[in-house]
Design a protein around this nucleic acid. Structure first.
Length: 487
DNA sequence: TTTTGAGTTGTTCGA
DNA sequence: GTCGAACAACTCAAA
């Protein structure tokens, strides 16, 4: 079981099964394999192996680019990435037969369906006498290592955060292997185009302009964040018109950058008393918390953590759902966010909360519909983070927001986009409206609208619901599912 | 077992 | 325009 035993074999080939760890740096599975005489890096496209949640379209686009980047990272080290398609267990079995590999190493994932699949693969491989080992590369603290004094999983963030700070700190990142020994002969590989990850109709222009997938892009983003955004993080992270956040979410999801590297980099940076690393590290630990919750409460991907929400009277309204998806709700801040998402595959976190609140509380449409749309359109779509975020907004998850907390799309806009720059960028038909009305064109006097060249209902939609009225409906609906009624 | 303090992100109303 | 209180009740985590 211990890797040191491996060195006794005379010539040993190890497979590194890449998944959501698309980097050579701080990659424990690769580091372990690199001690072998020959290493075969493989990526297996196995969308059916992820339960009923195969990666969405934006995610697949990112994956394609990230696989290009990983192969380019491996080449100078004397290696390359082998691509295969099919059920992971079958592909690994074939690859072992073709190459005579004696070991398969990978880094763990924590989605319920993937855990189940991987456990099956590991025991099958071991039964064949293959050295199958999994490692942690994706989390600072694995879900089973943080627990309350009573031995139960945390369901509230602040005590979880404190427990993380008190735990053994994350290990220092491993260096990238200088050389990765190739096998005598490379097994067959599909071409990347064979995987058909990219869309048939190229809608990815906006995404391409906004992002550089791969390790290099991830490191540049981290450098950019530390240099220009980290000091003002607390002040600007809520302003969607600025680049105040780290923008590392897609890179973290695909494992192009290691959370341990970010952690230690921030610690180093924060060691200088003029900097404060805590606000960002807290956000990084929210990602840990999401994985912790999904691991311990695997049913939460489609069912509420708080069971009294099972009976919530959600509305079915295809027209409203579509208006929300297309950014045509008539509320500029909401529409700007939905259009940013559609164009760039990403949405600023502040705006995610506002659009989510709007879907769930103004339209009374189930958070699962929102989660599904985000799953398909976000380049950083991540089962743990997506589930936590949507359940939190709906009030049915961990650390639930009080039910009377309903975001007001106008005041959120005025507060976090006071100059309207965000709305003007993504909803250009409103660009000429003065700041005073940019977040509420329906309240603007007729002459103001006319001067700005806007006819509501023609150039920009009337609001699809009245916020004040829907707010009251939401409060009433939430009052109806109090636990008292469930008993 | 019981008790106690606390809980990411808000809005509205009235002084 | 600004500020504090009210909005309700529940569950978690720790003592």
């Amino acid at each position: 079981m211990n890797c040191s035993e491996a060195t006794t074999a005379q010539s040993r080939t190890a497979i590194v099964w890449f998944r959501q760890d698309l980097r050579t740096d701080d990659n424990p599975a690769l580091a372990a394999a690199a001690k072998s005489d020959a290493v075969i890096p493989v990526y297996i496209w196995d969308p059916d192996g992820e339960g009923d949640l195969p990666p969405g379209a934006a995610s697949r686009w990112w994956l394609h680019q990230s696989l290009v980047a990983l192969d380019a990272e491996l080449r100078p080290k004397g290696s390359r990435l082998v691509l295969r398609r099919g059920a992971s267990a079958d592909v690994l079995r074939d690859l072992i037969r073709e190459t005579g590999a004696e070991a398969v190493f990978w880094n763990r994932r924590y989605e319920p369906a993937v855990i189940e699949r991987d456990q099956g693969i590991k025991s099958a491989l071991k039964a064949q006498g293959i050295d199958a080992q999994s490692f942690n590369s994706g989390l600072l603290f694995e879900p089973w290592t943080i627990e309350t004094k009573g031995g139960t999983p945390y369901q509230v963030f602040t005590p979880f955060w404190k427990a993380c700070l008190a735990a053994t700190p994350p290990a220092r990142p491993l260096p990238s292997p200088k050389e990765i020994s190739p096998p005598d002969a490379w097994p067959e590989s599909l071409s990347l185009d064979d995987l058909q990850l990219e869309p048939k109709i190229d809608w990815a222009n906006g995404i391409r302009e906004a992002w550089t997938p791969g390790t290099c892009g991830a490191r540049q983003e981290l450098q950019r964040f530390l240099k220009t955004s980290a000091d003002a993080y607390s002040d600007t992270r809520d302003l969607p018109a600025t680049t105040g956040t780290s923008r590392l979410s897609p890179h973290l999801h695909f494992g192009e950058i290691s959370p341990r590297r970010i952690w230690h980099k921030l610690m180093e940076w924060g060691a200088d008393a003029s900097h404060d690393s805590e606000p960002y590290l807290r956000q990084l630990v929210w990602r840990e918390f999401a994985h912790h919750l999904l691991y311990h409460f695997p049913h939460t991907t489609n069912r509420p953590l708080r069971s009294n929400f099972e009976n919530f009277p959600w509305a079915t309204n295809a027209r409203n759902l579509k208006a929300w998806q297309q950014g045509r709700t008539g509320y500029p801040f909401v529409d700007a966010g939905m259009r940013e998402l559609w164009t760039t595959g990403w949405m600023h976190n502040r705006v995610r909360m506002v659009v989510a609140s709007f879907l769930v509380k103004d339209l009374l449409i189930s958070w699962t519909e929102g989660a599904r749309w985000f799953w398909d359109t976000l380049v950083d779509a991540d089962l743990a983070n997506n589930t936590l975020g949507w359940q939190w907004t709906a009030g049915c998850g961990a650390d639930a927001a009080p039910f009377f907390r309903v975001f007001n799309p106008m005041s959120q806009g005025q507060k976090f986009d006071p100059d309207g720059g965000y709305v003007r960028r993504w909803v250009p038909e409103l660009a000429l409206l003065p700041n005073r009305w940019i977040h509420a064109p329906f309240d603007a006097p007729a002459d103001v609208l006319e001067t700005a060249g806007i006819a509501l209902g023609r150039d920009y939609p009337h609001p699809i619901v009245d916020h004040a009225a829907s707010r009251q409906l939401a409060l009433d609906a939430y009052a109806g599912i109090r636990t008292s009624e469930a008993t």
